[in-house]
């Protein structure tokens, strides 16, 4: 029996145990600090539905050995383009959601191909370059949002009539189209079933893909690229495919995030999207070259729990707005922890 516990702990990782302990401690303090556990839990469930897909978009690239996808902001831009064009073309209500998804797809494939082509050129140095490709893309798009000929008054600046607003409310567009769908209460905790189902659908798609022939090839490319090359796999094509897949999921993911959050955030918002997603998947137990769907689910829940419970609990206890600082320390601490682990080179 003792043996089993020991390897569960080793398997689960000590650092994650500390974080889980921290969260349980927060939940224990909840009643003392006057907020109901159920509201906290529904908060976590809600935010899981928003961020799940963004974290899931990390899986294909980690799987195929492209490393942690710090280039997420570039991929999010594809989604934003989809949304803005959909609204510009006058779609409203739930069709806007579907229109946004369909319009975002060609952009996602275009951005994914360019991004994949670049990553193939620089095998080994992906993470650093992905970060700055992401930032360059976002700052370029900022110029784009101002210059592109958008007319629809809902999204254009009121006084100048040129350039998009930074925050666009999608109140009468596709707000809560998924989260609201079949929403139910489970002893006090509201579960946004629609959004979770959407996440489950895409996650199942990924799981299924990894069982197909090309999916298996992608796993092999990630775990030992020379083995895959010797087995006749066109490494660059598989990596390109993984990048396009990741871009598409990220584009869908940001649209899903907006329907939960209620606002479309343009200009400099995507900058800060990469870190939380990377921290979440690492928290779930993924490593720099191995990630599974369960890592995504566990990681997102843990990360969102930290981000949501700490502010409510601590603020009401010692009225100190410390949550923002804790979020920064925890999310970057987890990434740092993963980066300093020795990933055993396939050769060793």
């Amino acid at each position: 029996m003792k043996e089993r516990i020991k390897n569960i702990i080793a398997e689960f990782g000590i650092s994650r145990l500390i974080i889980v302990g921290f969260i349980l401690f927060m939940f224990a303090l909840a009643p003392v600090s006057g907020n109901k556990i159920s509201t906290l839990l529904s908060n976590v469930a809600n935010r899981f539905a928003w961020n799940g897909l963004l974290v899931l978009s990390m899986v294909p690239m980690i799987h195929s050995g492209c490393g942690l996808n710090f280039g997420l902001p570039l991929e999010i831009e594809a989604g934003l383009l989809g949304v803005t064009i959909a609204i510009e073309m006058g779609f409203t209500g739930n069709e806007a959601f579907l229109a946004a998804l369909t319009i975002a797809t060609p952009f996602a494939i275009l951005f994914g191909t360019l991004y994949g082509f670049l990553l193939n050129k620089i095998k080994g140095g992906e993470m650093m370059i992905a970060t700055y490709v992401g930032f360059s893309a976002v700052s370029l798009m900022c110029i784009g949002w101002v210059m592109l000929p958008f007319k629809n008054p809902v999204i254009v600046w009121g006084y100048t009539g040129k350039g998009l607003r930074t925050m666009i409310s999608i109140e009468n567009y596709y707000y809560e189209v998924l989260s609201g769908f079949l929403r139910f209460k489970l002893f006090g905790v509201t579960i946004p079933t629609g959004a979770i189902l959407f996440f489950a659908l895409i996650a199942f798609g990924i799981w299924a893909f990894l069982h197909t022939k090309t999916g298996t090839a992608m796993t092999a490319v990630g775990s030992n690229p020379t083995f895959a090359k010797a087995a006749g796999i066109n490494i660059d094509r598989i990596r390109m495919l993984s990048v396009i897949l990741s871009t598409w999921i990220a584009a869908i993911g940001i649209i899903n995030y907006q329907q939960g959050f209620g606002y479309v955030q343009l200009y400099t918002a995507p900058y800060s999207m990469a870190m939380p997603a990377v921290a979440a998947i690492l928290l779930g137990g993924a490593s720099v070259n191995k990630a599974s769907i369960s890592n995504v689910i566990i990681g997102t829940i843990l990360y969102q729990a930290i981000v949501t419970t700490t502010p409510n609990v601590i603020n009401s206890l010692i009225n100190l707005d410390i949550s923002d600082v804790i979020r920064i320390i925890v999310s970057n601490g987890v990434i740092l922890f993963a980066l300093t682990r020795k990933i055993e080179e396939p050769k060793k």
Binding site: T219, A220, F227, A231, G232, P346, K348
Partner: peptide
């Protein structure tokens, strides 16, 4: 063997079946 011949972190099934499956 270790560098080119095997997928060290995968099961024996994958190692044996993989090339035949792909080609």
């Amino acid at each position: 063997r270790r560098g080119v011949g095997l997928l060290l972190d995968e099961t024996l099934e994958w190692n044996i079946a993989f090339p035949a499956m792909q080609i």
